[in-house]
Design a protein around this nucleic acid. Sequence first.
DNA 1: CATGAATGAGATTTCATTCAT
DNA 2: GATGAATGAAATCTCATTCAT
Lengths: 207, 207, 207, 207
Amino acid sequence: MSTERLVKCDFMPRKDGDVTRNRILQIAEKLFSEKGYDGAGVNEIALLAGVNKATIYYHFKDKQDIIVSLFHNIMEEVDAHQQLQADKQKAEGSIRSKIKNEILFLETKKKILAVILMESLKDNKDDTLFFCAKTIMYQEIGNSEIKDKKVREAFSMHEFFTGFLPLISFVVYREKWCRYFNCSETTALNVFLDVFEKTHLNTHIIK
Amino acid sequence: MSTERLVKCDFMPRKDGDVTRNRILQIAEKLFSEKGYDGAGVNEIALLAGVNKATIYYHFKDKQDIIVSLFHNIMEEVDAHQQLQADKQKAEGSIRSKIKNEILFLETKKKILAVILMESLKDNKDDTLFFCAKTIMYQEIGNSEIKDKKVREAFSMHEFFTGFLPLISFVVYREKWCRYFNCSETTALNVFLDVFEKTHLNTHIIK
Amino acid sequence: MSTERLVKCDFMPRKDGDVTRNRILQIAEKLFSEKGYDGAGVNEIALLAGVNKATIYYHFKDKQDIIVSLFHNIMEEVDAHQQLQADKQKAEGSIRSKIKNEILFLETKKKILAVILMESLKDNKDDTLFFCAKTIMYQEIGNSEIKDKKVREAFSMHEFFTGFLPLISFVVYREKWCRYFNCSETTALNVFLDVFEKTHLNTHIIK
Amino acid sequence: MSTERLVKCDFMPRKDGDVTRNRILQIAEKLFSEKGYDGAGVNEIALLAGVNKATIYYHFKDKQDIIVSLFHNIMEEVDAHQQLQADKQKAEGSIRSKIKNEILFLETKKKILAVILMESLKDNKDDTLFFCAKTIMYQEIGNSEIKDKKVREAFSMHEFFTGFLPLISFVVYREKWCRYFNCSETTALNVFLDVFEKTHLNTHIIK
DNA sequence: CATGAATGAGATTTCATTCAT
DNA sequence: GATGAATGAAATCTCATTCAT
């Protein structure tokens, strides 16, 4: 439902309702990332979004529905982003610059990514993390094309644990890491790129 | 962990209270890892631990105190483990087998590690994750010995993002990953070791 | 009931609004009878009636106004029905067949009758139940004609507790009763008529 | 659970908890009878019972559990009462005096009986009304002894619709009825007994 | 005539915590 | 050491109602 609304409004006079809905989502994303899903209250979301508590329940079935909508949205955005990247693929420059762009893109999603990570650690059925991993990492080569089971397993493992996870971990932990290890954020980015290139990129199984 | 405490108490008048205390910690660890700290209630912990709710507040100042105790314990255990490893270091075999042992050790702590990860993602002051990272990864070389700031930064980055994080991520996500990608858990371990060797270990800055 | 309204409006400029209004009343009647007045929400009524919640407030002052309208309508209908019956009175057959017809008529009102019963049991000022009782049972003799207080009391008591209440109870409980006592609905009607004849009708004070 | 508690406490030093629990039940009974189950709030119950809202949820799983406990209790009480009556049966006097006693007993339960009636009118699975009907009315003759299906049906119908229902209706409506028809409550009882004798008792199928 | 959006008040329920025993 | 009972505060969610369009 959330999607339909958003799509519709791309070429329709956006109604007030969607503005409100999006403001709620935006605040929820922020609070969930700061306190965790269970740590952030609907009350607080309403307060910061400047709407009545009941308004939240007008736009969302329940609290779960808020996080589900956020996950739904991010999946769509990641999908759209990857499709875009796929088009530019051959034309552009070095692999390092591509990774840098990827990080810059993920940086804009870092709040929701933190939420996804937290939720993915719980004992639930949510697979958003794996969905994002697949969409973000498998662009380089269609995973389905790898026929050999063993090769495919190694590839997935490589991509997920030494590619995707370090990447988004860097995005979500950078700030805290820099604070703890007393390091500037830009230095961190460059050093990370060096390290990432050396470990993950240079060891790609396929090409 | 419960064992460890009991061992310590071998030459102290062992009270029944410690049994209860440890049962509470054990259940709390389980529930926190399944539902997150905020998602698990004191009620539920008491119920599953088979004790009265008030008993929890006899043993712990408040809910925070439970998780703090868990974090405290794990830090001690990791510390102790690393000291033990340091002793055997030279004697033993390949680096791969050392990593395997490390994983087997971490596997026994995977529930509390998941909790640490969740909590570290929030906007709080908890540094348990970084403490664990330092203790587990810096055994090889005393980090403090690296004088050059740049080298030290690169080293830390390397250790944290492409060493420690993939390692504990593998431990906490293995089950979910295998279920999602339809792969046996033992295969996963071997493949991971291959990948980890190739990416992280082979690229160690300092030997 | 909805039909009745439309008939009335045959010689009035029939607005579309009446259709909506009647659909709301019809659904409200159904929901109130299923869940009680307080148990049924305006939301639900709007949903099932296929109209916007605000539409309900266009047609009715507030929720009370819905049930008041329903009560008003049923009182009018019972009144009209009794006047009709009074005309045919002498011409027609046995008292048993008259009661049967009465039951068949009440059957069409059984939802609202259940609501009236529920509301009449509460501590409120609503007298719809007594109004219906009077209208339905006192047709036989103008109650006001009975001058003697004692006779009038006995008559009212007889009519209300052993005439009216068994009658409408049969109508509203028939289904549940048949289900619970495992009895067909037609059998139930015949047996009830036997019983009612023997108990109430044969003991009429006034002929 | 509620039962067990009560039973236990008959010969045990009644703990404070049961006092509280019973006060809650008592107030709930009052409020439910005055406003209906949905019309009465847990807040209000807590307030009048002089306990904290949370205390109610310490003693009862949820709001439903309160009404279920009430129904459970009344069923036990009715059962116990009937067993007692069965013993005295032969010794005592006229059927009229027995009915009078019955009414005086039911009078003490009239609040919960009103609640049972309200709830029984809704579309739910609750059979408390039928249970009470069976227990109260079938004492005279073991219903199960009637072999012939037709006779049994007629008997049940007779007992339920012209015996039980007028009886409890009288109990729950007496006050309102007297107010509406401007009649004293004692007169009402006597007149009702006359009417009930003539209609229901004199027409008993079996003796 | 009807609706989408919004809301204040209040509903039910849960939370971490305390205390007398 | 441990517990049953209780609680204030806050959580999630629902309610009847309003209003601009």
